[in-house]
């Protein structure tokens, strides 16, 4: 609140000064640039409310792209129609299931491993940590094909597990949490051991509660990554059973006619969950991306 009210008050205080005009010009300029940048998203939302795909294309080159005469939710209703059309409702639910299981599982698995690496007494922790840091450089793109043969061999092809298990644990996130854990003062750990708590108890009731910032960072980064997966689900899903919405939307392309109205509605539906989280945790989103950058 203080952050917002302070710059708000500034122009009012200095309204008689000539600098204020510069401030207004700056504000108008930034607003215009922001409008241009965001306009593709506005066009998308407006387009998703038009029922006629020819109308969408015809409007696209004019300012009517920003306006809809008879807004309809028909395209969104179509997503749940399972006959003939692509079952987008199913794709969306699939994506949400994969998202929640991966993020919740990932946060716990990575933080448990990070705790042991940072504070445990197991021998060889330094070696494991070094190996993880080395593995972090391997790009997902260069392992997907051998991974596909492994997934096929253990009978997980076209499943949810194939889209969850390989991405829950990650060297990057273990390392991010590890770096947070080692900065926690030794006293806190010692105090917990004197009370006779085992490692899991210490992790669960002492370390987790004070580590929310880094856990949120990992949840956000892993969440965005999972939600945007495309190459892997494209290869590993063969039916609608576990197909995520990203692959579903992409399947509009490559066919002769593209149903822009349906594609736009599905795209809006794909954005809504991210937007909800973004609006709720905007500041955490930005700081997450920065911390991934600094560590990267």
């Amino acid at each position: 609140m203080t952050v917002i009210s302070e710059p708000l008050a500034a122009p009012r205080r200095a309204s008689s000064e000539p600098r204020d005009i510069g401030g207004i010009i700056k504000l108008v300029a930034v607003s215009l640039i922001a409008l241009v940048i965001v306009s593709p998203l506005i066009v998308l939302v407006v387009g998703s409310l038009k029922a006629d795909r020819f109308q969408i294309l015809a409007d696209m080159g004019t300012f009517r792209a920003f306006w809809v005469d008879n807004p309809t939710l028909q395209n969104f209703r179509d997503m749940w129609v399972f006959s003939g059309a692509l079952p987008f409702g199913r794709y969306l639910l699939n994506s949400l299931v994969i998202l929640f299981v991966t993020v919740i599982g990932g946060v716990f698995l990575n933080s448990m491993a990070a705790f042991v690496l940072a504070w445990g007494r197991l021998p060889g922790r330094a070696v494991i940590l070094a190996a993880l840091v080395a593995l972090y450089i391997v790009p997902q793109e260069s392992i997907v094909l051998p991974l596909l043969t492994i997934i096929n061999r253990i009978g997980l092809s076209d499943s949810f597990a194939a889209q969850i298990l390989p991405f829950m644990a990650s060297p990057l996130y273990i390392f991010l949490i590890y770096q947070f854990f080692i900065q926690i003062p030794r006293d806190i750990y010692d105090a917990a051991t004197v009370d006779g708590a085992g490692p899991f108890r210490i992790y669960w009731s002492v370390f987790l509660p004070i580590s929310l910032p880094v856990l949120a960072t990992v949840a956000i980064l892993l969440g965005i990554e999972t939600w945007n997966q495309y190459l892997w689900p494209l290869m590993v899903t063969q039916t609608d059973y576990a197909r995520p919405i990203s692959v579903g939307i992409a399947s509009f392309f490559g066919t002769g006619t593209i149903y822009w109205n349906n594609a736009m509605a599905a795209s809006v539906m794909m954005m809504i969950p991210v937007l909800i989280f973004y609006l709720a945790f905007q500041r955490w989103f930005v700081s997450s991306f920065i911390s991934s950058a600094v560590k990267g």
Binding site: L27, I37, V43, L44, N228, S246, W260, M270, V274
Partner: peptide, 28 residues
């Protein structure tokens, strides 16, 4: 700048847009 955090949030919107969605928009 007034509303700085608001603008930062606005300018960051494309970054949280999935590439598949970006393709739908930009193809049109």
């Amino acid at each position: 700048l007034p509303f700085r955090n608001f603008f930062r949030g606005l300018f960051f919107l494309p970054a949280i847009t999935s590439m598949v969605v970006v393709c739908v928009i930009w193809a049109t």
